[in-house]
Computed example of a mutant assay.
Amino acid sequence: MTSPFHLAFPIKDIESTREFYGGLLGCEIGRSTDKWIDFNFFGNQLSAHVKPEELVAAHTNAVDGKNVPVRHFGAVLEWDQWHGLADKLKEVSTDFIIEPYIRFEGEVGEQATMFFLDPSGNALEFKSFRDPSQMFAK
């Protein structure tokens, strides 16, 4: 059984965060004040706290010839759900850090992945495995 996680992270403001996570990504909005807001992030709890002084650009590491933000979070979606989100993000001209693509195509661990920033500059990765049982395959 998988347990949901909780993640707290800094943001620059409530309104752009509400529009991004609640509107664009379709996350249910939970409790909020003028200093923090909670989201149901694909079955997990995100707590976004207004703390602009803690926002810093993520450093990157080279992975498969791409610059992957070291500090990032996201979700593993079902294959069709990932493709639907990728299409939606392309339709609204999302500025991707790493455009949606398929890694390890035809190999063990084949996965779809994409990286982009939220309005506060937090890096997000969304991925999906063609065969979910291979999520931790070597």
Rank of each mutant, 00 (worst) to 15 (best):
G121A: 09
P132Q: 08
F116M: 05
R103G: 08
Y101C: 12
P100W: 08
G106S: 09
E107G: 02
G109D: 09
K138Y: 01
S93M: 03
S133K: 14
V108S: 13
P119F: 11
A137E: 12
E125N: 12
I102V: 15
F116P: 00
F126C: 10
Q134N: 05
N67R: 10
E107H: 05
L117P: 00
L89C: 12
W79R: 14
D95Q: 13
F136Y: 12
N122F: 07
V92S: 15
F115L: 03
R130P: 02
Q134G: 03
W79M: 02
L85P: 02
F126T: 06
L124P: 15
H83M: 05
A112G: 15
R103P: 00
V76C: 08
E99R: 02
K88L: 07
E125D: 13
L124I: 07
V92E: 14
A137I: 05
T113K: 02
N122C: 10
V108A: 15
D87G: 01
L85G: 02
W79S: 04
Y101D: 12
E125K: 10
A137N: 07
R103M: 12
L124G: 13
M135P: 01
V63C: 06
V108H: 01
W82D: 05
G84K: 15
E99H: 04
V68M: 11
A112D: 14
H72V: 04
A123I: 09
G74T: 06
G84Q: 15
A86T: 05
Q134K: 11
Q111N: 12
T113Y: 01
K66E: 14
P132A: 04
S93K: 15
W82G: 01
G121S: 09
V63P: 00
E91A: 15
E107I: 00
V108N: 08
V68Y: 13
T94P: 00
N67T: 04
E78F: 04
L89A: 04
F126D: 10
P132L: 07
G109N: 10
K88W: 00
H72W: 06
W82A: 10
D87R: 13
V63M: 11
G84W: 00
D64M: 12
Y101G: 09
Q134D: 11
P132R: 11
M114N: 08
G65S: 06
D87L: 13
D80S: 14
E110D: 07
K127V: 05
L89H: 10
A112I: 00
